[in-house]
Simulated assay, not measured.
Amino acid sequence: MTSNVPATYQEVFRTERGVVYQCDASNRLILEFWDTHTQLSARDFVQFRRMVETIDIRQMALSTAAAHDVEILTPPRSERCYVLTLCEVVHLRELLHGAKVMLELNAMLRECGCSVAE
């Protein structure tokens, strides 16, 4: 993963395979996955996360048909296209779910008036 992260990016969640940053300057979430960067609005992030969650990984794992070897996804309002294997879908799900949980936690802390740790 890239070590040249702009100062305006705040890390939301990281796994071995990727990281999600939040950029307050552009009001975007940046998905870094397999050395690619995709900027998403909060709404597009939620929509993309739902797309990834709806992939039937059980069918991908059990099917012998070549059509189920990969899943092709295009994030909303993006020119990027992800062609994902079963393992990559699992890794992306983990990353997006972790980011979702951290964003929800930060929102709850702000509502309570607690300061969010930097």
Rank of each mutant, 00 (worst) to 15 (best):
V52T: 01
T74V: 06
E94H: 08
T8V: 10
Q59M: 12
G18V: 02
L29P: 01
S3A: 07
Y9R: 07
L84Q: 07
C87Q: 14
V12E: 03
P75F: 05
A67H: 06
T36A: 07
A42P: 07
P76K: 05
L31W: 02
Q59S: 11
Y9D: 05
Y21W: 11
D35K: 09
G18Y: 00
V116D: 08
T64G: 14
C87V: 10
E118Q: 15
N106G: 04
H97W: 13
E111A: 12
T36G: 02
V89Q: 01
C112A: 15
E11W: 07
A42K: 13
T38A: 04
P75C: 03
R58N: 15
M1Q: 09
F45Q: 03
H97V: 12
E94A: 12
I55S: 01
T38P: 03
D56W: 04
D56G: 00
S78D: 01
D69M: 11
Y21K: 02
R43L: 09
F48N: 00
R28N: 15
Y82M: 04
V70P: 02
L109K: 14
V5Q: 03
L96V: 01
G98I: 05
R43K: 14
N27T: 15
L95Q: 02
L92K: 04
V101Y: 08
A61M: 06
F13W: 13
N27H: 13
E53K: 11
D69Q: 15
R28T: 09
V52P: 04
R49K: 13
H91Y: 11
R43A: 11
E16T: 06
F13V: 05
C87P: 06
L92T: 02
T64F: 14
E118V: 14
L84Y: 00
T74I: 02
H97Y: 14
E79M: 06
L96M: 03
E79Y: 09
W34I: 06
E16Y: 05
P75S: 00
A117L: 14
C112L: 15
N27S: 15
I55G: 04
V70T: 12
E79D: 13
W34D: 09
G113Q: 06
A25F: 11
D44V: 07
L84W: 00
N4H: 15
A65W: 05
L109Y: 10
A42N: 11
A67F: 05
P76T: 05
V116A: 08
V12Q: 02
M1V: 07
S78A: 05
S63A: 09
R58G: 15
D56R: 06
D69G: 11
F48H: 02
E71R: 11
E16S: 09
R77F: 04
C23N: 10
A66M: 09
V52E: 02
I55A: 07
A117K: 13
I57G: 03
M60E: 02
T74L: 01
A61F: 09
R110Q: 12
V46C: 12
R50C: 02
